[in-house]
Amino acid sequence: MRTKMKQNTIEKKISEEKESKENTFKRIVNWFISNLKFLFIPFSRYETLVEKEYDYEKTISKRLFIRRLKSPLTMIGILIVFSIVTIAVFQDWLTLYPREWFINQVYSGAFDPPSAKYPLGQTDLGYDVFSRLIFGARTSLTIALPAILFSVVFGVIIGIIAAYYSGPLDAIIMRIMDIMMAFPALILAMVLINIFGQKMEYIMLAYGLLGIPFYARLIRGSVLQAKSLPYVDSARVAGASNLRIMFRHILPNVIQPIIISFTFDIGGIILSLAGLSFLGFHDPTLIEWGFDINKAAGRIADAPWASFWPGIMIVITVLGFMLVGDGLRDALDPRLKNL
């Protein structure tokens, strides 16, 4: 009897678990459908909204955000970023020639004009310009993204700590940041790359280090403002530790400008990296748009295609990120939210 009961309860539990699992899954799906359809279906609204305006007000900001993002320019930006990422991921299927063709090889026909075999012309060593354009996408993204993440993470941590503890620690940290800001960034990058060596990881590291002061300053300003707000005091009264106050209470409230700046800066970093590789500070094993332009610059008069197309790729990529950044800023801008 008892065992039977036990079995029953166990069965019940299992079925309950199964049900709850199904329920969670259902809930997630429902959440996705109800929240993301705004992104894909134009003019979509919650069906029950007109009757239930009470709920309506709660969703207003989320829906506003998504709707603002739907401006045509932002859409173009998202499309560009999406395509660049796609190109970067699926590069091996998109090129006319495999990656191996571009390592330590020389082909005939340096700077030849576009032909059937080479749709956008050839470079100094007779490489296919078109294939190099596609290989360049991955290089740009793989260097820019980790570099900027590095600067954001460390910049935010340093900025919050400096602003939160203020006093001498703040003074010392901010002086160091000032020095780094006063040092011309391009030169610092070149020197650092020269010291570390011309490898991808080191270029990332150099750029990551360079971005730190900017984010640290940005977040320090907002934390100093937020620190004096009542919610920080109430968190302290509630007995939260310093770490918890810094990263659970203050950070979410000041992260917005960082998110906006982050998107812009991806574009900025890609631009600077192109500049650096144009000056010759690049990883020679990688295919980079900037360095391609460097190689072709001397022959701009008679072979413009070799430097024109890589430049166009840089412009499009950076433009994409800038457009998304613009859209994000408009959508997140608190000043535009109220009438």
Binding site: I60, L64, R67, R68, L339
Partner: peptide, 11 residues
């Protein structure tokens, strides 16, 4: 009236 993205606010 205010013509916002959310609809017409009849202020």
């Amino acid at each position: 009236y205010f013509y916002t993205e959310e609809g017409v606010v009849k202020a």
